[in-house]
Amino acid sequence: MEVIIFAILSIMTLGGGVMVVVDRNLFHGALWLLISLFGVGGLFVMLAAPFLAAVQVLVYMGAIVILIIFAIMLTRGVMGMRETSNPRWPVGIAVAVVAFVIVAAVLKLAGDNGLFSVASPTIALDPSSDYWKFTVANLGKSLVDPGQYALPFELASLLLTGAMIGAIVIAREDILG
């Protein structure tokens, strides 16, 4: 059962990704991106990360893809939503395939040496155990715990504020009055 769900989510993720890459119509590409991101969110659920799955739906699918669609709509005059590849696209394919082969080879090597051949996680998913009951609460606590991630958390909020102000300044029309 778990394998079937994993296969469906992987096909959604990778198939959506392929369509994002090959679809010449940018708007359709953005919709395929939604499918792909939903598959990733499902994988987060399978990996026992419910908070990240919710954030995936809210932030990625809800906000980022909408922002991308806004940008496509605002700029579609130039290319008429059609899009062609860079003349050097075979290089792109070659680099991507080589990267994938290298990663797969490293995984194979590591598997042969028993490094990543983890068939099952160190802590089994048992809904009745306290650990899995409180993962979201634990994540929240560790994000604001000064001993753990409070400083990166505050830095991330600063980064977001800076990015928002920067985006407004850059996109404004009458930038210097």
Binding site: G17, R88, A96, A99
Partner: peptide, 12 residues
């Protein structure tokens, strides 16, 4: 997924 994204970033 990473390879697909890399192709898109390089070739589009």
């Amino acid at each position: 997924l990473f390879s697909l994204g890399m192709y898109a970033a390089l070739a589009r």
